[in-house]
């Protein structure tokens, strides 16, 4: 039975855990089994954060590193931090928003060159770059960038859930204006990716 393994990576405060929970809840609505890992580290914000979502016939929350289907990176450095240690054919959705680590700015240095990073991961991974923060702002709040990313993942076609499942998960979590912003963010994200990959089939 095929399972779906996904890693969401970013920086504390970007809505990484919320994104993982929304996708998980959508999977439940699709009638699938799901487990998710959350690591609540030292400080509340500013450090590397990653969440794993595993859908299908799985036990633990940690994906085998050669079996990752999708990396959703909320920040370029954090995306590559995960990408370099997993299988080379993982699909990658990457938010372009650069957050400079203190370790860089303190040394009066600038953010590493993204194109150089891409060229150094010699892999068959397809990297889709998205300006999720800008799209989130268009939807009504930059904080909805995480839902823009989910929308993009939906259009990529790889998620074992559909638009209705995600919408229902959003309805469970948000109300009023916030719900409208997030549904708008999902739709803007969906329009960002036109290429469609094969859906990962997971049986209930």
């Amino acid at each position: 039975m095929k399972t779906f393994n996904m890693i969401i990576a970013g920086v504390g405060g970007q809505g990484v855990i919320t994104a993982g929970t929304l996708i998980s809840e959508a999977a439940i609505k699709a009638g699938l089994n799901v487990v998710m890992s959350e690591i609540h580290g030292l400080s509340q914000r500013g450090g590397s954060v990653s969440v794993e979502v595993r859908i299908g016939d799985v036990y633990g929350p940690i994906s085998p590193r050669r079996r990752v289907d999708l990396i959703m990176g909320f920040e370029p450095i954090e995306t590559f931090r995960v990408l370099q240690s997993v299988n080379t054919d993982a699909r990658v959705l990457m938010n372009k928003e650069k957050l400079t680590p203190i370790s860089v700015s303190m040394k009066d240095e600038e953010y590493p060159d993204i194109q150089k990073m891409i060229s150094m991961v010699s892999s068959s991974s397809k990297i889709y770059e998205i300006d999720a923060v800008d799209l989130g702002r268009k939807a009504g709040s930059f904080r909805s960038a995480n839902v823009v990313m989910i929308g993009a993942a939906l259009s990529l076609g790889i998620l074992p859930v559909n638009e209705k499942n995600i919408t229902d998960a959003l309805i469970d979590r948000f109300t009023g204006k916030l719900l409208d912003i997030n549904i708008g963010a999902m739709k803007l994200g969906m329009m960002e990716v036109s290429e469609t990959d094969e859906k990962v089939q997971v049986s209930p």
């Binding site: 920086v11 504390g12 580290g41 030292l42 400080s43 509340q44 914000r45 500013g46 450090g47 590397s48 450095i77 954090e78 590559f80 931090r81 370099q84 680590p101 203190i102 370790s103 860089v104 590493p112 990073m117 150094m120 991961v121």
Partner: peptide, 12 residues
């Protein structure tokens, strides 16, 4: 093998 800058947790 990428030389990525570390991002330890920081004071907010």
């Amino acid at each position: 093998k990428l030389d990525l800058p570390p991002r330890p947790p920081v004071l907010c």
